[in-house]
Write a protein that binds this DNA or RNA. Structure first.
Lengths: 155, 155
DNA sequence: GTGAATAGTTTAACAGTTTAACTAATTTTA
DNA sequence: TAAAATTAGTTAAACTGTTAAACTATTCAC
């Protein structure tokens, strides 16, 4: 790739990722905003999908400090959406699980998220959107590895 | 597309966009976090690229209320990075421009952002990344129109 | 058994957000 | 043309998410 092409691609990427992020975030908030913040929704999704979820695991997945997770967890636990149970063998560890109320609310918001994503994904033909997501997944892998390398620097 | 394919694509999209957003945000913060928050950087970028930028314009571009913009603008104006000048013809309007200090700082962070984006974009071959960005831009257009339609509902 | 490491919480401070009320200026309209 | 409605932007209060640093409680290593 020549320099000029690269510069153009960089500019286009920065610009388009900004717009997509802002608009998607905003549309998502319109859908689920009365029930949950988007971060709270993602936290519930993560807890539901994992078997034994801990704060440390969430902190790593969300790329934030553990205290940020504690704050979010406190808010949704106060609303009775999740439960904390201590590990019997290692009493430092706290497992997070969804309560029935949490499961119901998450299912409701999850459906809304799916409908939203469906409404724009189905505007592409199958080949185009599949190729797009394939490349997007490669990008996710690259970024995850860059992040790991960077953390490796602190050794 | 059959239902099963669509469901799978939705799940993959939700998952991968989450990971990319979190990791990219986190890498970006590592690069420019000592100088500016990412939102502040994007605000400076927007002001620099536009000729006569106002708070209302920023609020629309960032999909937030005007008071959110006022708060951000206040913080970077307190640091002497931008200047406010009132329109002579319509004295309600305030134009935002970068100060010299703001321009310099923005250039510095902009370079770091470009290097970061370059470092992962150049890991793809030209055809793949170009196709990806093309589809990404279509998506941006779709989301922008969805957002507009939704606002039209309030009529 | 003592010292180091680990899991999680608390606290203080800050950035970004919304809603509602507000000021000041301009436009509409009756 | 004077009153009413609209527009641009700010302020204030309340909330969510974030970090850094100090802290508790527990477990691990030697």
């Amino acid at each position: 790739m020549d320099k000029k092409t690269i510069q153009e691609l960089i500019d286009r990427y920065v610009s388009v990722s900004f717009v997509v992020n802002k608009k998607a975030e905003s549309l998502l908030k319109c859908q689920i905003g009365e029930d949950l913040t988007t971060d709270q929704h993602y936290i519930l999704s993560y807890i539901q999908q994992s078997h034994e979820c801990t704060s440390s695991e969430l902190a790593e997945a969300f790329d934030v400090n553990k205290s940020a997770i504690t704050a979010i967890i406190n808010r949704i636990a106060d609303r009775g959406l999740i439960e904390r149970t201590r590990d019997e063998n290692d009493r430092r560890v706290v497992y997070l699980t969804l309560s029935d109320k949490g499961k119901k609310l998450h299912q409701k918001t999850q459906e809304k998220v799916h409908l939203l994503v469906e409404s724009f994904i189905t505007q592409f033909d199958e080949t185009e959107i599949t190729n797009f997501i394939n490349t997007y997944e490669k990008l996710a892998l690259i970024l995850t590895n860059m992040k790991k390398d960077e953390e490796g620097d602190n050794s």
